[in-house]
Design a binder for these strands. Sequence first.
DNA 1: GACGAATAGTTCGCCAGCGAAGTAGCTTCC
DNA 2: GGAAGCTACTTCGCTGGCGAACTATTCGTC
Lengths: 204, 204
Amino acid sequence: MPATRTSSETPGETTGARSSGELARPLAPSEGVTARSADTEDRADRHVARWRDHWIDVDFDDEIEAITVRIGLISKFFDDARAAAASEVGLADFEYKTLHMLMIRDTPGHASPTALAKDLDISPAGMTGRLDSMEKAGWVRRTASVEDRRKISVEATKAGIEIWRRAMDLRGEAETRLLETLSPERRTELAALLKQLTLRIEDE
Amino acid sequence: MPATRTSSETPGETTGARSSGELARPLAPSEGVTARSADTEDRADRHVARWRDHWIDVDFDDEIEAITVRIGLISKFFDDARAAAASEVGLADFEYKTLHMLMIRDTPGHASPTALAKDLDISPAGMTGRLDSMEKAGWVRRTASVEDRRKISVEATKAGIEIWRRAMDLRGEAETRLLETLSPERRTELAALLKQLTLRIEDE
DNA sequence: GACGAATAGTTCGCCAGCGAAGTAGCTTCC
DNA sequence: GGAAGCTACTTCGCTGGCGAACTATTCGTC
């Protein structure tokens, strides 16, 4: 347990972990941050500022807090974009997610219900429900395996693949639109920094 | 609509948008990426590689795809950490989220149900349900307003505040543990890059 | 000062997902 | 070769959330 963040009631005692200082920091050391991004507050900045006002006895590193908030905001943006893309073409969010997972796996277009459930982080029971409604809608098909009659293969239908592709294109547009805010060099930097974190996560 | 990503069936026609090339890129141009992070694949790398193998006719920028996948993974890590912290102290995930939103707002500890529902991105009906069960559990209290009898104020109880603080400390530990993977300078870089994106999002 | 519109919150019926229990089929091993 | 145990999927009852009415109160306007 590093970074012991006690609920101590000693207000002024936590200066050590704090980052530089007031809200509009002088300018990040990393070269070439645009003026706009340096002196304009985003929601994360405002959150941290409010936090400092009201919960002065909580020992938080401002920058870590800001990063987690921003990751959450960006992730929400992607989630919303995905949901919007799905509904645009007439898919429920869960239908898109299921089709997507089905298509991007190493055996594109078919999988066992259990494997799919694991990938989607839902229970086997939930998977059954999804497949029931999606089979009825015509996006997937269940076919029994011959060599092991317990096994079932879920396959995307032609219609399912088609509609998924349309939703995916819309979704990709939104993602691209956002990330083109950054220059290619910046994107490479960002990708590398994020990768350090995902590798850490995969190490458990 | 930038980045027209059609569902065209012309496989080799999309080379323009691709980033550098094979999976293990020579090494990102950004200074000082650790060796480990440059030559080890993470889940996003594997996803992109598989993608390229199976969906060669889809026009994706590898790096943009990798970034979105990584943001998703990191966000999921934070979500899981939050849920684990909540259950550790005996709170349902939705209870923690509600208490948290109640406490971090500019009027810490109390708010109207509608305002809270908006912040939490759930419906008014859902809010009523949450408050019913949380009031029964003793984490919040509903008090009627005097000057406008339609209005209700939701307030966190002492017990609610206490248990929220305990969960939050646990959650913060997990976040700190992950982000300490990066040096303070790297964290500053990351925060700045992410801020460019959140500012863009806030611009709509 | 009274009637219509707007607002705050609750109630109702529905749906997606979960956990636990149930069923069916394969595998192992004596 | 058959009983025990594992695996794959389904069924059932419950819960959190949504959207759409509904109730109560205030505001706006003439």
